[in-house]
Computed example of a mutant assay.
Amino acid sequence: MGLVAEFQIDCDALPLVSVAAAVPEASITLSLQYNHGRRPVFLATVTGGSEQAIERAFTDAYDVQEWTRIGTAGDTRRYQAMPALSFEEQLGGQVDDLDGLEALATADAIIEQITVTTDGWEQMGWFADRAAFTEFASFWQQNARFRLERLTQDTEPKPPGNGLTDRQLEALRTAYEMGHFEIPRRASLDAVAQELDISASSLSERLRRAQTQLIEETVATLWPPLPE
């Protein structure tokens, strides 16, 4: 029976982490397009953050050779970025087993969602069985910091907000219970952050990522946008 896993890989050498670090208020989801030679092209969907800050971060990113904005829908922009580095140049300083990394591409798994964070990647994937997941998790446990957020059978129904991490759920619940979302607000961002014992900037990023995930699950803008 298959498994669905949600996990965090903390590795600042992963693609586009420098972009997320430069504009932490933005939410960046990433997919990899493997039909452009040995190194996949980066396809990034960015929500939030200023257009100028995001595009400056792409220009400054050490792992991006060139980028193109493909389109815009409201506060969401899509980019295609050509990698500037080989796998060895990108990850060789932190990942010893590069052959093992490439082997993961042929594992019995599908990585359905990648969210780029300031520390690494948050991912959700489907694994054919426990052995396939163990192979994947063991590799990253040996080469980076791997944190499993949720592991379920693929036949189990998904609760609303299934794509949220435990930290995002905690941030949303605490902010809601303290009245941060009420009009007028009963609790400031600083007050909620103090309750969670994190910085206001970290809380702002966590809430934005959680809200973006919920929007994508429910009322996300269709892509491409419908004609008016």
Rank of each mutant, 00 (worst) to 15 (best):
S138F: 02
A109E: 12
I215R: 15
S188D: 03
W126D: 09
V19N: 03
S27E: 09
D63G: 10
A220R: 10
Q153A: 14
V41H: 07
I111N: 14
G49R: 10
G92M: 11
R150V: 05
T152G: 02
T59E: 12
E122W: 15
A105H: 05
L196M: 09
Q90V: 00
Q52F: 12
P224T: 11
L196C: 01
T174S: 06
E51N: 04
Q211P: 01
Q123R: 11
H180S: 04
A26R: 09
R145W: 11
T134L: 15
L148D: 06
D99E: 12
E112R: 11
C11G: 05
D63Q: 10
E55W: 07
V41R: 14
G37M: 08
I114D: 04
T45R: 12
A191I: 05
D190G: 04
A103C: 03
I111R: 14
D10N: 08
S138Y: 01
N35S: 07
L151G: 04
P157H: 12
E217F: 03
T106D: 09
G2N: 09
D99L: 10
F87K: 07
P160M: 10
V19C: 01
T117V: 09
Q113M: 12
T218Y: 03
H180D: 00
L14Q: 09
V192R: 00
G161P: 01
A200F: 00
E217Y: 03
D108A: 15
Q141M: 15
P157L: 13
A61Q: 12
R78Y: 10
L91C: 06
C11R: 10
A200D: 06
Q194V: 06
R78I: 11
A220K: 05
G74T: 01
S201I: 10
R150I: 02
R185F: 00
A175K: 01
F136P: 09
G2T: 14
E216S: 08
L30Y: 05
W126L: 14
F136C: 13
D12Y: 12
A210D: 03
R208W: 10
V23I: 11
L32E: 11
G74K: 01
V23H: 03
Y62N: 14
A73T: 04
P159F: 09
A21D: 07
I9C: 08
D166L: 11
P24S: 07
D75F: 13
P225F: 15
S202K: 02
T118G: 01
T174G: 03
E156I: 00
L226N: 06
N143I: 07
G49M: 13
L196T: 04
Q142P: 04
V95K: 06
H36G: 06
L43H: 14
R145M: 12
Q141H: 14
L169A: 11
L169N: 04
V95E: 06
A132Q: 05
L164K: 02
I9V: 15
Q168I: 12
T221F: 05
E156Y: 02
V41C: 07
F42I: 03
F58K: 03
F181H: 05
D108G: 09
G2R: 08
D60M: 13
A73L: 01
